[in-house]
Design a binder for these strands. Sequence first.
DNA 1: CGGGCCTTGTGAATCATTTCACAAGACCTG
DNA 2: CAGGTCTTGTGAAATGATTCACAAGGCCCG
Lengths: 224, 224
Amino acid sequence: MPRRRSKPSESTIRRLSLYLRALEGLGEEGESTASSELLAGRVGTTAAQVRKDLSHFGSFGKRGLGYEVAPLQVHLKEILGLHRRWPVVLVGAGRIGSALFEYPHFGARGFEIVAILDRDPAKVGRRWGEVEISPMDELESVVHDRKAELAILTIPWDGAQDVAEALVAAGVRGILNFAPLQLRLPPEIEVNDVNLALEMEALSFALHLGGSQVDGVDARSGEG
Amino acid sequence: MPRRRSKPSESTIRRLSLYLRALEGLGEEGESTASSELLAGRVGTTAAQVRKDLSHFGSFGKRGLGYEVAPLQVHLKEILGLHRRWPVVLVGAGRIGSALFEYPHFGARGFEIVAILDRDPAKVGRRWGEVEISPMDELESVVHDRKAELAILTIPWDGAQDVAEALVAAGVRGILNFAPLQLRLPPEIEVNDVNLALEMEALSFALHLGGSQVDGVDARSGEG
DNA sequence: CGGGCCTTGTGAATCATTTCACAAGACCTG
DNA sequence: CAGGTCTTGTGAAATGATTCACAAGGCCCG
């Protein structure tokens, strides 16, 4: 197994997802091969970056030709672990939870929300499509029964830490966390934070700065 | 004005947001000062990192004491551009748009959704709270009238590029983009992508790898 | 008011990521 | 099958970010 030259960085992984989506687009457009330069253009990076990213996992291209769209898609899906179905538990049946439950791109990637939990008794028992909302005290049995290793947390910050710990105790190994706090969990648990206010704040910073002190901003003018 | 020793990185900016939130928590807990180490603990980074991040913008701490919670909060808000109100246009009145409209943490940071646009005639004219949904052909006038420099894009990928260009033409300078495609806009326009499927895929990668080839994974066991 | 204790701010060193540059192949054409 | 053209895969160089380590200050106590 001659793969894995050096360990891929977090950013490499994230770009693999982008390459995968770009390849799907190219496939729909009828392209059967793609050069690293073409892929880079679609994803907003450089050709060298694409090649380096892919090289961490093997040699998928043909010199002089580029990469074949369909096979590379398969490879990327396998690398990312998307060749299988992932049962997911959604905790928090609020607005964001509801939006994510309907989010079509999850299903397209094998992520299937198989259970919904909420602490609000008024919501428990309702059905969203095929899935009935369960009370929080069924957390452990639900996670266990459905063999869910992934969870999405869309609850207010004040319950998040406890729920996260319960999820981990029940067998969850990866959490997509929308609660705006830093979860403290064992290091082997993978947590991805989505902090929407933070994203807006990053925009605010950039606009604020650009509006008031444009002087120091170079980069684009001096050539490359 | 002796600020700005070197240019802060994107990651530094994002951590500033985290520090700000941590400081708010500390304030509520009654703390009046915070050391870089305490802040680092709350945010999941190192004390040196906190100090280096802050040092890009000035000297806010007192040696021997640490940082005063309330004043540092004010400084961070100013650095991030949060000392003012930001009118925001929301494009896409679907599930995600609805969730974001209700999202309490936006308002708490001065981001106010002042207009909603949707291409679906069935939605146009409805009210969400105080805001009525407008048709897409009012995009330019709405952005202009409300002086919105920020927009949130929660529409399907197939319309996103055109809408983004229209927003920019109307005066928008920053976009929070939920559409899973790479927007092609002038470089002075700030775009932050929130790609939810990608976040799940990053989790999937980590779990997939951890489950199948644990051998190469070191870091935690051997200590350092 | 001097000594001890803390914690900042920051150059220097380390570590990580990205970019460069080019040899090694692969295909095509004649 | 040789020569031309293209594009990969990859060490090496350049750039960027984080961590280290410590001098400079500030506070408190006696």
